[in-house]
Amino acid sequence: MSLAIDKFGHEPSEHEAENASNSYLMSLVAVVAGLPLPIMNLVATLFFYIGNRKGSHFVRWHCTQALLSQASLLPVNSIGFWWTISIIFSNEQISSKYIAYLITIVLFNLFDFIATMIAAVQTRKGIHVEWWLYGSVTNLICRA
């Protein structure tokens, strides 16, 4: 997942930049608050997305990108969550495969977390940031 800084169609206003940046902050706040269920980050970002459906293109574009990044983490994190639950409550044993999976999802979440922080800072400055994969998908579904 790389971050590409592109020029957007127009120069976003101060208010637009703040709203776009907040869409990334929503998912960060949910992580920092230590919410245990992986769906919480997605829900937080989704609420913000719904709230800004009628915002400017710049705001909608970044809300969509933030939502996509959280949505893609959901299945990956959910597998880890339910795997852990089955170890605690059923006959499933801790295995090397389980630990390897946990490390992999921690790495992906960390990468996503850092990318989200950078995106939050850059969009706050009014700079348009397109992520690897999510940026392209967002361009496809979020038209001006």
Partner: peptide, 27 residues
């Protein structure tokens, strides 16, 4: 095509990291 390529590369990176890490006897 670009999206599909990026998607497959992302899945491949995830799978490779997981496969590599699962070769270690973490227990």
């Amino acid at each position: 095509n670009k999206i599909l390529l990026q998607f497959f590369i992302t899945v491949a990176v995830f799978a490779t990291i997981y496969f590599g890490l699962s070769q270690i006897d973490w227990i």
